[in-house]
Design a protein around this nucleic acid. Structure first.
Lengths: 197, 197
DNA sequence: GCCTTAAGGTACGCAGCCGTATCTAATGTT
DNA sequence: AACATTAGATACGGCTGCGTACCTTAAGGC
């Protein structure tokens, strides 16, 4: 296949990272090889080696490119319960949920680098930004649904942790009934939402 | 290395499964190869192939052998809070905690077989047996610490889920402060333990 | 239009692991 | 003591991916 046009610089790099992402999604980290990625990108291994000397570098670049692009959408229904359930639903759908399950596949990478999913997450998150559930609570307080008292981060972000745990355990995005269970049985009672129970 | 005695049958099988376990612990599932295991057991690949045609079979046999042997110990302090914290502490220590983190490494296996950690867990658990936290609650009710009301399984087993989530995220057993946080900030308030808050 | 840069292609040797075949010799059984 | 079994050793061809070296040719800067 002799293409007339030859890609260069950023254009080529983008194409490679897209191909790498596709390979990662389809074949997991075990199949994330220079060989497969180069083939998928329609280029050759030396081109990849010139840019990323280590597989780990390539992985990081790949993830970094595809992470920020797809934040979880925050619903605004005017009601804390519906906001929370909707938020979990969004978290499971789309690329965000895939990202989480992909994290599980990266166990081998974490092992090799001595890092963890938590580290990767820290590395990718915008520092200082409020989490989804923190913002949901802010709004609920503004609406007067809840008193403005301090709450431990562990409690605030509990639903997301449980949701992620569920994804780790089952390797698929949990259904709505799980989200509802988490919110109704655990979270709302815990933060003392007046209409709970 | 020509050994005088030649192992056979169950003795050999045990030795192989022990070697397989060691390899699994040290090199994770990616390094879990017939080659490495045979070498470690001081035997040859054909011997393994005669018993387990598939790598997955060998993995299951290996895990099955080393799972039941080490249940998490249930403390009995006479106090629900101390019981719960102690139980989480035990869950993180020893082979049980390792098992959980090993589960993370098996992502590739789950992918290949279309199963999940949850499936594996189901497969290994004694059916019908009450979970650790269910038993802790039973005893607390007997002591009169708590009313005998039904509680959703999700709430009852919440601490373990959060603890496991923590292990998944950080790839190491959480410290006591995490266990205490989970019990004090989340669980005890949720089940209405009188001395909480 | 010349010249530097880098993409694209090919090839090399190396390593690890696969699955199987074959032979031997130790072991436990009868 | 003869025998069936099977562990253990070795070897085979094959495959995939590694990392590098090399050459060519297209692209972009000047």
């Amino acid at each position: 296949m002799t293409l007339k046009s030859r890609r260069r610089g950023p254009e080529l790099e983008d194409a490679i990272l897209d191909a790498a992402w596709a390979v990662l999604i389809e074949h997991s980290y075990a199949g994330f090889t220079y060989e497969a990625i180069a083939a998928r990108a329609g280029t050759s291994r030396p081109v990849l080696y010139r840019r990323w000397a280590q597989r780990e570098d390539l992985l990081l670049a790949t993830i970094r490119k595809h992470w920020a692009a797809h934040p979880v959408e925050l619903p605004d229904t005017g009601n804390l319960r519906d906001d929370a359930i909707g938020f979990l639903r969004n978290a499971g759908a789309g690329r965000s949920g895939m990202m989480t399950m992909l994290g599980m596949q990266l166990a081998e990478y974490f092992r090799a680098t001595g890092t963890s999913f938590s580290d990767l997450r820290q590395h990718l998150l915008t520092p200082g930004q409020r989490t989804g559930f923190e913002r949901l609570l802010d709004r609920a307080v503004q609406r007067g649904e809840l008193p403005d008292v301090p709450r431990p981060p562990r409690v605030v972000n509990l639903p997301f942790d449980l949701f992620r745990h569920e994804m780790f355990m089952t390797m698929r995005p949990p259904g709505d009934e799980i989200a509802i269970e988490i919110i109704d049985q655990v979270w709302l009672p815990l933060i003392g939402w007046p209409q709970a129970r």
